[in-house]
Design a protein around this nucleic acid. Structure first.
Length: 655
RNA sequence: GCUGCCUUAGCUCAGGGGUAGAGCACUUCCUUGGUAAGGAAGAGGUCUUGGGUUCAAAUCCCAAAGGCAGCACCA
């Protein structure tokens, strides 16, 4: 006998058959009025559908916190969008309109180009449809009859054929309004009961997309929008988008004078003094961490001969992404990865099992010929530096090495404020095309899974996503706005060290040669990208230990310049990055400038301070910290640097 | 790379077939000040680039480059 779980957690036995509406009627009236669908097992269905199977049941209420509710709302909103576009642009053909994580889109082929200027008209039409409170009605047809309804429309016919190929017994259409009269679209559903639920709805963007994602296929117009159960939910979402815009690392990078990218040299970063200060602090931090975890650091050539890339397999598989050059009729390539170089270092001298594991690290400067459309600020560039390392070990050392790596990684992430709750781990397992025995894949996958668990992290499995030569772990950070950024990775590789490839081996206890297992790993990923993420995560307000300008001393007038310089000298001697604002501006202007530049602390010095040997301290948010002797200031800041203290969470952050 | 949109002063942007505009920043001068912008004057532009239409193009058309969004890519 199936059971219905009520919103308060209580459970009721249900007699079959029943319908969604009957289930909703079992809820308190106030909740029943918000019912928009049901969940049968893992399947979301229309409120009007009937239930005949024994499965856990739940009524879906219009609620911004319920992903199933948002799914229903957004899927339905996509339909209303499509109807509005069809009404305003007769002749529009529809391809595909699914919900997404944050909203929905509809791919369609309008008779003329649609731009954001058309949004007000489309939204007005949508509001009209929504205000009309028209029911979504499901109509099912036998395959032949259903296909007849899509005849002449190649997109819908294709969708219908695909649905049948996936085993759908019948084709379903949804009518908004009265069947036979209302607007109709081929759709598997499910939908909300009526258009009235879709009032918190907004169009966001328009762009191009290809049919089936194929560049050679038809080009379609994709209109993006989102929908929430409540106006409050929609407004909160729009505020979050606005906040993300304010934190955009490209905007802050310019405003805070951290870096720039030359128009004539796309995809490579010119780091300015302030940005480079962050870069160096980050690199020195990682260098110390690596030393602590038993890594040795190396440096390999930027340009290497074609023969080496042929042996590593890159010339074959990765050439399109490599910058290639020549000298005296020989081909060379700028390195896109560091692994071959590290193997060459490993192979200098015969290695014993006693030498393993050997952890070789490099701040590896890589250049990849990324497609122009992929470039994005400093998050996706052509030239970047990886905190790369390769661990050479025996197979029986894999698990402990991965565990050690996970420990190091969680320690590093925590230092930037990403605790376990802000780390998502994905384990990519064996693909269909692979080398190696099933037993060795079993061992490798289990080793990675055990190591992640040992680090106190949970993980999701991504079946079949591993490389052909080994499984991998990918670590995604969730930032202050709840967005995910993939940074760390560790990948098991038995291919590159094999005798057929670069032949990295060791002499075992048995006196025989054995191929190494190699672990490719990175924690930050690329320094460029990681700094971009930090800029957005901290909204430009870096922790003191990373900040380009930790303290700015603001003399009240020129008379106090000598004292200000004296304070600066003391702070610099103590290793702090301190400056003096020497401009002939009034104090208010100096404070404004210091705050706009997110200088962590600024110290006002005037006659009182000079006489007392103190400063009046304030932080970048304008918090007054009072007068304190210069030595107390130095101590306070040094302590904060040493502890790598994080800034207080930004009140504007959503997540 | 593909599609669409965008490109005007160092920055943020307005304008628009017929002497190129604002705010901020910059330079100089005045002001020496106490917690988010003191005042005045000045300088600053091949309106991304190349073609075309026109008596006349920064403006309209075509192309290229770069940027933005999305797609594809990210072993």
């Amino acid at each position: 006998m199936p059971q219905l779980t009520l919103p308060d957690g209580s459970v009721r036995d249900i007699t079959l058959p029943t319908t969604g509406r009957e289930l909703a009627a079992l809820l308190p009236a106030a909740l029943a009025a918000r019912a928009i669908g049901i969940k049968v097992g893992n399947e979301i269905r229309d409120l009007a559908s009937s239930v005949t199977e024994d499965a856990p049941l739940r009524v879906i209420l219009a609620d911004d916190r319920d992903p199933d509710a948002l799914y229903l709302l957004r899927h339905s909103a996509a339909h209303v969008l499509a109807e509005a576009v069809c009404a305003l642009f007769p002749g529009t053909r529809l391809a595909y309109g699914p919900p997404t994580d944050e909203g929905f889109f509809y791919d369609l082929a309008p008779p003329r180009a649609i731009s954001e200027d058309d949004f007000p008209a489309i939204e007005a039409k949508m509001r009209e449809i929504i205000a009309a409170d028209r029911p979504f009605t499901r109509c099912e047809y036998e395959p032949a009859a259903g296909l007849a309804r899509t005849a002449g429309d190649k997109y819908k016919t294709d969708n219908a054929e695909r649905a049948l190929a996936r085993g759908a017994p019948r084709l379903s259409f949804y009518v908004t309004g009265i069947p036979g009269e209302g607007w109709e679209d081929l759709c598997a559903g499910p939908h909300v009961p009526s258009t009235k639920w879709l009032s918190a709805c907004k169009l966001l963007a328009v762009s191009g997309a290809y049919w089936h994602g194929d560049q050679r296929s038809d080009r379609l117009t994709r209109i993006y929008g989102t929908c929430f159960a409540s106006e409050a939910g929609l407004q909160a979402y729009l505020r979050r988008i606005e906040e993300a815009k304010q934190r955009d690392h490209r905007k802050l990078g310019k405003e805070l004078d951290l870096f720039h990218i030359e128009e004539d040299n796309p995809g490579q970063v010119f780091w300015h003094p302030r940005g480079w200060t962050i870069y160096l602090a980050l690199m020195e931090y990682m260098r110390a961490k690596q030393r602590q975890y038993g890594y040795v650091e190396v440096h390999t050539p930027t340009v290497m001969a074609r023969a080496l890339w042929e042996r590593s397999g890159h010339w074959d598989k990765y050439r399109d992404n490599m910058f290639i050059t020549e000298s005296e009729k020989r081909d060379f390539a700028i390195k896109p990865m560091n692994c071959p170089g590290h193997i060459l270092i490993y192979k200098q001298g015969l290695k014993s099992y006693r030498d393993l594991p050997l952890r070789i690290a490099e701040f590896g400067s890589c250049v990849r010929n990324e497609a122009s459309g992929a470039l994005h600020g400093i998050l996706r560039v052509r030239g970047f530096v990886q905190d790369d390392a390769h661990i050479f070990c025996r197979e029986d050392q894999v698990e402990s090495e991965v565990a050690l790596f996970c420990r190091m990684l969680t320690e590093v992430y925590a230092d930037f404020g990403f605790g376990a709750e802000r780390i998502e781990v994905k384990l990519s397992t064996r693909p269909a095309q692979r080398i190696g025995s099933d037993e060795s894949w079993d061992r490798a996958e289990a080793a990675l899974a055990n190591a992640v668990r040992a680090a106190g992290l949970s993980y999701a499995i991504s079946p079949g996503d591993g490389a052909f030569y080994g499984p991998k772990l990918e670590f995604t950070l969730v930032d202050a706005l709840g967005r995910g950024w993939q940074c760390g990775t560790i990948q098991l590789d038995t291919n590159l060290p094999s005798p057929e490839r670069l032949d990295a081996h060791y002499i075992g206890e048995d006196g025989q040669r054995h191929p190494c297992v190699m672990l490719h790993r990175a924690i930050l990923g690329s320094l460029e990208r990681f700094i971009g993420i930090l800029i957005e995560h901290f909204a430009g307000r870096f922790p003191l230990w990373l900040a380009p300008e930790q303290l700015r001393i603001l003399p009240v007038s020129d008379d106090h310049l000598p004292y200000a310089r004296q304070v600066r000298a003391r702070c610099q001697d103590a290793g702090l990055r301190a400056t003096v604002d020497e401009r002939a501006d009034k104090l208010g202007a100096k404070i404004r400038e210091a705050r706009l530049m997110r200088v962590n602390y600024f110290a006002v010095v005037g006659a009182q301070e000079a006489a007392a040997g103190t400063v009046s301290l304030q932080d970048s948010r304008g918090q007054r910290l009072g007068a304190m002797p210069v030595e107390a200031l130095v101590q306070r800041l040094r302590e904060e640097v040493t502890a790598r203290r994080l800034p207080a969470p930004d009140p504007a952050s959503a997540a």
